[in-house]
């Protein structure tokens, strides 16, 4: 049962990702991106990470994809239908993508902690387990990420407001 669901949504996510890189209209690309995020969220549920799936929907589909569309619309010039001309140097792009994928795969496969478990993971992944880990073992990275986001927020406000020019 879950294998069928996995293949449906994995194919959906990959097809949507294909749509992101190939569609001529950049707004379509952004909407395909949202679809791809939603497909990945279902894969998280199949891995018993419900909390991560809900966060994926809330942050990535609901906010990040929308912000991408926003940025695209605000910076758009000329005709929308030709806004995302297929890049001539797709070969280089594919090369970069494949090497990044190979690098990540290498790291995951060589690190024993990250391998696929022999028996399916049943416990953990709920909100309670996540928060316990975040506030104990991973306290410092969590706080560092929070500080980084605050800095980004303040920077965005300053950029939007404009700094007073010194006389």
């Amino acid at each position: 049962m879950s294998t069928i669901v996995f293949f449906i949504f994995a194919i959906l996510a990959i097809a949507a990702a294909w749509g992101v890189v190939t569609s001529k209209n950049i707004v379509h690309s952004a909407f395909y991106l949202a679809l791809s995020f939603a497909g990945v969220a279902v894969l998280y549920i199949l891995m018993n990470a419900d909390f991560l799936a809900a966060v994926q929907l809330l942050i990535y589909t609901g906010a990040v994809a929308v912000m991408v569309v926003f940025a695209v619309m605000l910076t758009l010039r000329g005709d929308v239908r030709e806004s995302n001309p297929e890049n001539r140097s797709w070969f280089v792009g594919a090369l970069v993508a494949v090497s990044v994928f190979a690098m990540i795969a290498l790291v995951v496969l060589t690190n024993a902690d990250w391998r696929v478990l022999a028996t399916p993971w049943t416990g953990g992944g709920s909100a309670e387990d996540m928060s316990l880990l975040l506030l104990s073992q991973f306290m410092i990275p969590f706080e560092a990420a929070a500080v980084l986001l605050t800095v980004a927020l303040i920077g965005a406000v300053i950029l939007a407001k404009g700094v007073k020019e010194s006389k």
């Binding site: 949202a34 939603a38 809900a54 929907l57 809330l58 589909t61 609901g62 929308v66």
Partner: peptide, 13 residues
């Protein structure tokens, strides 16, 4: 609750 909020955030799209 979290599922509810996550789902309703999609209506923005």
């Amino acid at each position: 609750i979290f599922y509810f909020v996550a789902m309703s955030s999609i209506s923005t799209v």
